[in-house]
Design a binder for these strands. Structure first.
Lengths: 241, 241
DNA sequence: TTTTCGTTTCGGCGAATGTCGAAGCGTTCT
DNA sequence: AGAACGCTTCGACATTCGCCGAAACGAAAA
């Protein structure tokens, strides 16, 4: 047949709004059951089954049985990153119409396994400003303060290999600006969740900044009150448009 | 509404096999008319119009009128790279069934504006081996022989800025291995086409290596006869599976 | 064992969509 | 001006697909 990639197979899997919602729900990296997903997407379990089957056949998700539950999750980090990249292309009028300013999604959210949203962008630029990371030919590399930063946060130095970058840019669909993924990005999100700087919200990828989190983020990433206000107000100002 | 990216909008645009074929045809970076595309996709002009309208509405393509012709092309490099990344996810059984071993697509093809396929992979590793490029924390950076290489090939030194990497990895859907894009990748393909080392094939992204090209590629990228045979035979060996 | 519950299969309904032929419109060539 | 050509719109047809309710299946709990 045609010696071309079958874009339509994956496209068809993404083509339905309901499936897109399911995928977005799964994009925080956790696994969910049929019932949870059908509830989140406002459909009945039979319909969810059909959708999940399609997603799995297209290779976008995987499922494992555990007793009478079946857990579904994104098939791989590769899939997650391709989907995130695709989100970038969403026509801007749709994003603006869809994004409720008071939802936390614009402020802080997780992107498969690392931090995104305005907070993610902020942290990234702070890491660059303070020399923890630096730009080298358009790519992110450890900077002079890199090891001090790891010690400060009590992080294991991520295994730095040629094939697994410490940090790389990941384009954010709400901000259209880069934030960091890579092993450092993953470690930061893990740390923030473990120490309860951020807590997951029930039914979305949004994250909430706890009081302790505010203190810690201020200390480690220079997230001043005014910066927080600024993040908040820029969210609010978007609502008026 | 939902504060989530509308993956389904782009998904719907990709969902149809015919549209996928059109996109693949456009992925070589050139612009084509309605008629050319309808012919390539085995549909009538009216149908092509409908498809191209959808692609344009989804922001994947752009069109410009020129007299009584309308040329369509991929909307941006960003779209091209997202699509290429998405191609990576194509279920492997479909790729294997679809890829005819004797078509040149596996050997050498262009990926929007740079070189891909086995030749692209080969050249990338050769550039790394010879110190033209080097790995720095998982990213590509110019190596010690970088400027000598540019002089040797009579290339203008691409503008190296922090925001426009000289070279970056681009995952190939046939090889599942990295090859280079970025300004250097673009320059190499341009040079190869201009000096007729490679010629485009009529109706696909595949490229043909000319006799002069073989000599030049041998000189500049160490592409020995045995390496060529190896590339060819590994193509052949894939056919048996 | 019986009950409960999560998941899946099946059948049917309604909406959306890919396809084409015929016809209309605008540009270019003769 | 007239003919040729490329693109688009329109109408009609067949197919696909999302969705749900009812019912079946299978594992856990009572």
């Amino acid at each position: 047949m045609r010696p071309e990639p079958r874009l339509d197979i994956i496209g068809a899997a993404l083509a339905d709004p309901t499936r897109a919602r399911i995928l977005c729900k799964l994009m925080d990296g956790r696994a969910f059951t049929n019932k949870e997903l059908s509830c989140a997407a406002n459909i009945t379990p039979p319909t969810a089954t059909a959708h999940l089957k399609q997603l799995e056949r297209a290779g976008l998700t995987t499922s494992i049985r555990s007793g009478r539950h079946v857990f579904h999750r994104i098939a791989s980090a590769q899939v997650a990153s391709a989907l995130e990249k695709l989100s970038t292309l969403t026509p801007s009028d749709h994003v603006r119409r869809a994004a409720k300013p008071d939802s936390g999604v614009l402020l802080a959210r997780c992107c498969y396994n690392h931090l995104a949203g305005r907070l993610g962008v902020w942290i990234t630029y702070n890491l660059l400003d303070t020399g923890v990371l630096q730009l080298a030919h358009g790519a992110l590399a450890p900077g002079p303060r890199y090891h001090a930063f790891l010690t400060d946060l009590d992080l294991d130095p991520p295994r730095v290999s040629a094939h697994r970058p410490v940090a790389k840019f990941c384009l954010d669909w709400t901000e259209r600006r880069n934030h960091i993924s890579g092993s450092l990005g993953i470690a930061i999100l893990e740390k923030a969740l473990k120490d309860k700087w951020l807590t997951r919200q029930r039914s979305s990828r949004a994250l909430t900044i706890t009081p302790e989190g505010k203190i810690a983020l201020t200390r480690h990433f220079g997230l001043s009150d005014s910066a927080l206000d600024c993040l908040g107000s820029s969210v609010r100002s978007m609502a008026k448009r």
